[in-house]
Design a protein around this nucleic acid. Structure first.
Lengths: 154, 154
DNA sequence: TTTTTGGTTCAGAAAGTTATGAACTAATAA
DNA sequence: TTATTAGTTCATAACTTTCTGAACCAAAAA
């Protein structure tokens, strides 16, 4: 595969990005590798070879990534190897999911507001403002995504 | 302080929400406590008492939370205790920051696209679409936030 | 049939994170 | 002056995550 230094650097940076999202290091590096690889796929063997990690670490990571719909594999006739590639079609959906995760706190805030005895307090008013903000985003974000798709069909 | 079972449950759920964001358990529980407390503040002593963790764990967490502008404290004349409370005014800014973190991958994708030899490939076209999507969101999200503020001033 | 290839599984090692408890500081009170 | 209060710091204990290496399995090749 013979990756350039620049590509190796990008793999590590993508790795760190995913680590910050709470995913395990190897997962992020596999995403990085599949981003910079040309063509954009790699076999199991290439993955653990290039990333210099054990087969088992790669096996565990790929199982996880398939469950999360991050990667898929194709096979070729007369070749038992699996060719893993990123599921880029789901990428935008994943971004949406990440937004939804942020907005998840809305339900908890709702429950907190219900418990408050004094709903006129400064604190509670601010809380209600945040709740409304989250509600607003939850409604508007899907529209924004539609708007993006619309710009492409022109 | 004498928290109801419901409040204790909410504290734990807020805790788990923050754990998923990659913050340490105690940090999330402190946010939870400061959300359900009435009035919405607590002393250092109340925090480690209610959460049943050590003083040092609370000290470390509060130092971190102050650096991240999550909490602040006020004092009262003739009382050496600090009264910690959530900085709700920054909450919406924090949500924005979380969005920005998601969009951060845009720069990496840009660099990946530059490296690609065949920019007409299916993979590269999808990558460019994602890049444009992230660019679109980075432009539109601030406008959406303005729109929310505008709805309030009517 | 035996060997090779392409992976999976799992016990435990290594590394990283989080919490504790004891010792400490600095300010106030007695 | 000594004691108490409010909180910090740090070594290390406890726990969790991540990775490795060895053993394993199933399919194909020799």
């Amino acid at each position: 595969m013979n990756l350039s230094e620049k590509k190796k650097e990008i793999i590590e940076r993508v790795g760190v990005y995913y680590e910050h999202k709470g995913l395990q290091p190897v997962v992020g590096r596999i995403v990085g590798l599949l981003l910079v690889a040309e063509p954009a796929e790699a076999t199991f063997e290439e993955i653990y070879g290039e990333l210099q990690v054990s087969k088992s670490a790669v096996s565990t990571a790929l199982t996880f990534m398939q469950a999360k719909e991050m990667v898929e594999y194709t096979t070729k006739p007369g070749d038992r190897k699996r060719y893993f590639k990123l599921r880029l079609n789901e990428w935008k959906t994943n971004i949406q999911k990440q937004f939804d995760d942020i907005l998840d706190i809305e339900n908890l805030i709702k429950e907190v507001v219900v418990l408050k005895e004094n709903r006129q307090s400064d604190f509670c008013c601010k809380l209600i403002d945040i709740k409304n903000f989250l509600l607003f985003l939850r409604k508007e974000l899907p529209l924004l995504l539609d708007k993006f798709e619309a710009t492409k069909n022109k």
